[in-house]
Simulated scan of single mutants.
Amino acid sequence: MMSRTLLAKLPPLCLSLALLLVFCVLPAHAARITGYRVIREPVCDRAGKRLLAVRSFERDGVPRLLVVDPETLASYDLPADSVKKSGDAGADLFRSTRLARALERYNSPPYRLQNGGAVRAETEVEGLFLTVDLCPSKRPFERDLFEAAAALGRGRAVPVAVMISGVWLSTHPQELAYLKDEIAAGRLAVTWVNHSYHHHYDPKVPLPENFLLAPGTDPLQEVLQTEELLLSQGLVPSPFFRFPGLVSDGGLMQRLKELSLIPVGSDAWLAKGEVPRQGSFILVHGNGNEPKGVKLLLPILKDKAPRLLPLPVAFGPNTGAL
């Protein structure tokens, strides 16, 4: 930021322009999130719609709830007083929902060290699911891939799942502002997927002791810190999670289930030579760490113009049971 001495020497008009420039580049004010707790409570909104409250917290001192529609898999940040508990009847109904079925199916044995959970659409669909990992990185942001995706919309918001780490989010305010602008302009419809906070990785360590399996890692805090950070920025975490490196074990899977989160892997990690087909979860990195994947993706988006689908569509039909 400019020093007071330098600002004092500027003419009035230049001073105004300088101050405007300074404040434009500062990150947007983040809300204060406190009292963040994991819950699982069936609730109803004022219209009688049944939802599942999965987190309670205060934002700038005001009680809020993070809730998930268990049929559409959409998530919402709602005032706590805008819903009411639905009791045992709601709990019974939840067990037959789309969310409950996905949690049971994808967080259960057999457990794989890599690429556990959902890797593609459950049913036949006409389209692909674009998932973009934003692991911690100091390399340039891959803006081209988001622009190429947005160009497919032709006036409609294009769905993209952004797998975001807390460290990337907290160190890239300008890139985050760009994504927010694309959403506000109706060019992108982003599903915010938790990708852990620190995303620890040591290339010299074997997978069973790496990523979230590294000794001393607190998986609960890795999840919750990222959720809090998203909410502080006015972004709503989805009921999905991508393991760093796609590495996990049975203990991590069970923890995700307790947190009401569905693990999302991939059957089309482009940089590893995997070829997408209808229903695939495409995996690329938008943080500059894996340019090969972006280089392979851009011709797919520009030449083949695939239909990109929202991530919840992959998890079976919406039965409308609630």
Rank of each mutant, 00 (worst) to 15 (best):
D45E: 13
S75A: 14
D69C: 05
Y36R: 03
S56W: 03
T34K: 13
G48H: 06
E71R: 08
L65V: 13
A74P: 12
I39W: 03
E71C: 07
L73A: 10
V43D: 03
L73I: 09
D69Y: 04
L73C: 12
V67C: 10
G35M: 01
A80F: 06
P70Q: 13
D81F: 00
A47S: 15
L66W: 15
A80R: 14
A31F: 09
D81A: 03
L66K: 14
L65F: 07
T34I: 02
D81K: 04
S75W: 03
R59Q: 15
E58Y: 03
L66P: 11
V38G: 07
L66D: 15
G35V: 02
D45A: 04
R40E: 15
V54D: 08
G61T: 13
D77I: 01
A31N: 03
L51F: 10
R64L: 11
Y76F: 05
P63W: 02
R59M: 14
L78P: 10
V54R: 15
I33A: 07
D45V: 04
L66Q: 13
A47Q: 14
K49T: 06
A80Q: 11
G61L: 14
P63C: 07
G48N: 08
K49E: 03
V38F: 07
D69I: 05
D81T: 04
L78V: 15
K84C: 08
P42M: 07
P79W: 08
V67P: 03
Y76R: 07
P70L: 13
K49C: 02
R64D: 00
E71T: 08
D45W: 12
T34D: 15
V83Y: 02
A31K: 01
D77F: 00
G48V: 05
I33K: 02
F57W: 08
A47L: 12
R46K: 14
C44E: 10
D77Q: 10
K49M: 05
V62C: 08
V38N: 09
A47Y: 09
L78K: 05
S56N: 00
F57T: 01
R50P: 10
L65I: 10
D77L: 08
K84E: 14
S82N: 01
P79F: 14
G35Y: 00
E71P: 10
E71V: 11
G48T: 05
L65S: 06
V68F: 03
R32W: 12
Y36T: 04
F57I: 01
I39F: 04
V43R: 04
P70V: 07
D45P: 01
E58N: 11
Y36L: 11
P70H: 13
T34A: 14
I33Y: 06
L73N: 12
E41A: 07
Y36F: 15
R37M: 05
D60R: 11
P63R: 00
D81E: 14
L78E: 04
G61Q: 07
L52E: 10
C44N: 12
V67E: 00
P70K: 11
C44G: 12
V62F: 07
C44I: 10
G35C: 01
I39D: 02
E41Q: 11
D45Q: 12
Y36G: 06
R40T: 06
L51Y: 09
V43I: 10
L51I: 02
R37I: 00
